[in-house]
Amino acid sequence: MNHMTVRSFDRPEESVDLSGHGHRDMVMLDGTPVERSEFDRGWRWSNDVKPIAGTDSCQTHHLGYCVEGHLRVHLDDGTDQDINAGDAFEIPPGHDAEVVGDARVVLVDFGKAFDNR
């Protein structure tokens, strides 16, 4: 049967505070998590999420879109890549990331980003 589903990030099914430097909100669409993350100036995965995740680097595969801001991703192999507003991205497991500049970063992630808290 065809159906349409609409969920609002104003009423997320799950929300995680990231040490006061941001938060993640998640809604489910047809069994698939969709996440909206907001990272404030000064946010870095290794400082704000590593203690929650319990791993040395983020081990989640990300597929998403950057709504606003500038994020720098540091892969475990030493490669760095910048993600800016308007960019679609795919990030493999094994990375750190940080907000660049004074503007917050807003990302929409399609997949299982909540698996690595």
Rank of each mutant, 00 (worst) to 15 (best):
G22E: 00
L29S: 03
R41W: 00
G69Q: 03
W43M: 09
P92W: 00
W43N: 04
P92R: 02
T55E: 10
G64S: 07
V49T: 03
S37A: 15
T60N: 12
R44M: 10
C58Q: 03
H62W: 05
E90A: 14
H3V: 01
H3Q: 07
E38S: 09
F9V: 05
H3D: 02
N47I: 04
G22M: 02
S15L: 07
E90N: 11
F39I: 04
L75S: 09
E90R: 10
G86A: 12
S57Y: 08
H21Q: 11
N84T: 12
A85L: 06
H70L: 08
D77N: 15
G31S: 09
A88D: 01
V16W: 09
G64L: 08
M4R: 13
L18D: 02
V73G: 07
G69K: 04
V67G: 03
N47E: 14
D10V: 03
G94E: 02
H95F: 04
H62Y: 14
I83P: 06
D40W: 04
P92F: 01
G22C: 05
M28W: 07
M28H: 10
N2K: 09
H21S: 09
V34D: 01
G86W: 05
L63S: 10
H95D: 03
P51G: 05
D87M: 08
R7Y: 02
V73I: 15
D40Y: 10
T32Y: 07
M4W: 07
V49K: 01
K50M: 05
D17L: 06
V27S: 01
E14A: 14
V34F: 13
D82G: 12
S37Y: 03
T55M: 05
D30H: 14
H61I: 01
G54Q: 05
Q59C: 07
S15W: 05
G20W: 04
N84K: 15
T32W: 06
T79K: 13
L71E: 04
D82M: 12
F89T: 00
P92Y: 01
S37I: 06
R72N: 05
L18R: 11
F39R: 14
V73W: 11
I52K: 15
V27R: 02
L18K: 04
R72Y: 03
A88R: 09
I83C: 08
V49M: 09
D77L: 09
L63A: 12
V27N: 01
E14H: 11
N2Q: 07
D87L: 06
R41T: 10
F89Y: 15
G78P: 12
L63Q: 08
Q59H: 06
E14G: 08
H70T: 10
D48R: 08
G94C: 07
T60G: 15
T55P: 05
R11Q: 15
R11W: 05
Y65E: 06
H61D: 07
E35M: 15
T5R: 12
E14M: 14
G22L: 02
D10Q: 14
N47Q: 13
H61F: 15
M26P: 00
N84S: 11
H70F: 13
P33S: 14
D87S: 07
M4Y: 05
F39Q: 12
E35H: 06
C66D: 03
S8I: 06
